[in-house]
Design a protein around this nucleic acid. Structure first.
Ligand code: NAD
Ligand code: NAD
Lengths: 221, 221
DNA sequence: TCCGTTTTGTTCTCCCGTTCACAAACTCCT
DNA sequence: AGGAGTTTGTGAACGGGAGAACAAAACGGA
């Protein structure tokens, strides 16, 4: 239902912009680590791989954090974007399905360093229980409810086979998870108010194949 | 350069549509396996998780493969989409960087079944050489050129740390690879004519966090 | 053969996102 | 203090994609 109340918080930022903010954040972190104190929209845009006009417009949705004639203070802007995205706080995450992909995700250090803390690894297969992955013990999927309640988990990752994905999503939603990152193929149906993002590597490769095929066709002209 | 010659092949399909064709393809495969011979745009759209008008418009770019009053022949449409995307043929692929993620990718059966054949696993770390992953031996990264030449590889996957990604991409491009799927963070710069698609899991999680934060804010109203 | 029903293919309109272009604002130099 | 040079923030034009709506086409039954 999500009743979209009147206060509806501050301004709302276009989806396309939201998807780019993390990219800017990473570029700023790189610049900061390189010792850069200030940068122009042109320089930051180059580092992020976008058009500078687009970058400025994106940043303008957050407020006026730059100085005309000078540019942006790297650390200040970085903090503002991090705050806007919500990665100044720590987000507890559960990963369900500790197979090939689940192992890789659990071992990935990039999540922790960006404000996401894996609080549990869950799998339905009893033979996997007790295994330690990246310092965390694999637990039964049935522990989901208690873990979510205990840690206040809002974000869940699904790395199970496609056939199990909908059932896993249903359980997640039922116990209060409102954001899901799904690696399984197929469409997940969830109630309004729950966000789902899907990562589908096959689609990516197939899009590449399409363009590749067109290049090949063009060559015999 | 890619000189975009005059013939420029048939009609060109909007990018947004190209990205959805693989989704339709998967939905059709599922329907076919379930024994469905014919389906309406409404039914297929539901299976693919999109609007039916959008689906029909997408399909109209390929041609008129439906029958008014009846719908689409599942297997026929499936073949037409597969042909358009280019997955009726077999695409040889190399994966570079056989760490956490590289292992998961190599073990993933979904690629093979969709027309992508992993012909080599490459890593710069000598201690990994000789290891068998999914029936393929990990080879030195320096074998890249000979493997690409031998198998006519056009698509490369980068699963190395971010610092190595640009160098790997350069080597790939130099030996004739024209499509890259990149899992490493940061921006790859490649010459015109080379397609790069990037998968960034941190970005996905951060977008979820943004919306999650907004939901939380709304609640205290 | 003719009419009602179903469903496609396409046209039209609207909206979101991208990009251009420029005034406003700030710095630095003289 | 003033002018030249920079760079931001934004108004406006533009392009592409999403969805509604409908005419054209096929089918089935009488
Ligand atoms: N491996 C990859 O590189 C890759 C790439 C793209 C997509 N995917 C997708 O990601 C998913 C996982 O892939 P994978 O290669 O890790 O598969 P996998 O078979 O190695 O792992 C799946 C895990 O999920 C567990 N599981 C099964 N049903 C479950 C349930 N109901 N509840 C909890 N856990 C359950 C299994 O025990 C297993 O450990 C698949 O849907 C796959 O299509 C994987
Ligand atoms: N593991 C994940 O779930 C995950 C998630 C998101 C993004 N990523 C990204 O994917 C990439 C790989 O992640 P990972 O966890 O597998 O890292 P990893 O360190 O486990 O593996 C990297 C592999 O690349 C090899 N390598 C390093 N330099 C190389 C070079 N120049 N040429 C060839 N091979 C080289 C290393 O020997 C190692 O085997 C990283 O950029 C990471 O940020 C990983």
């Amino acid at each position: 239902m999500t009743a979209r109340t009147s206060t509806e918080s501050a301004r709302d930022i276009p989806e396309a912009t939201v998807a780019r903010l993390p990219v800017y954040l990473r570029a700023l972190t790189t610049l900061s680590e390189a010792g850069t104190g200030t940068c122009s929209s042109e320089a930051l845009a180059a580092a992020a791989g976008v058009n500078s006009a687009k970058l400025r417009k994106d940043l303008s949705y957050l407020g006026s954090y730059g100085t005309r004639g000078v540019g942006y203070d790297v650390d200040y802007l970085r903090y503002q974007i991090a705050r806007e995205i919500g990665v100044t706080q720590d987000w507890p995450v559960v990963i369900v399905g500790i197979g090939n992909l689940g192992h890789a995700l659990a071992n990935y250090s990039g999540f922790r360093s960006r404000g996401f803390r894996t609080v549990a690894l869950l799998d339905a297969d009893p033979t996997r229980h007790g295994e330690m992955v990246a310092g965390i013990e694999v637990q039964p999927f049935d522990d989901l409810e208690s873990i979510v309640a205990e840690h206040g988990v809002a974000i869940g990752v699904i790395a199970t086979p496609a056939v199990a994905a909908q059932a896993v999503a249903d359980r997640m939603v039922a116990c209060g998870i409102t954001s899901i990152l799904n690696f399984a193929a197929g469409v997940l149906s969830v109630p309004a108010g729950v966000d789902v993002r899907k990562v589908d590597l096959s689609v990516e490769l197939q899009v590449l194949a399409y363009h590749e095929q067109r290049k090949a066709q063009g060559e015999l002209a």
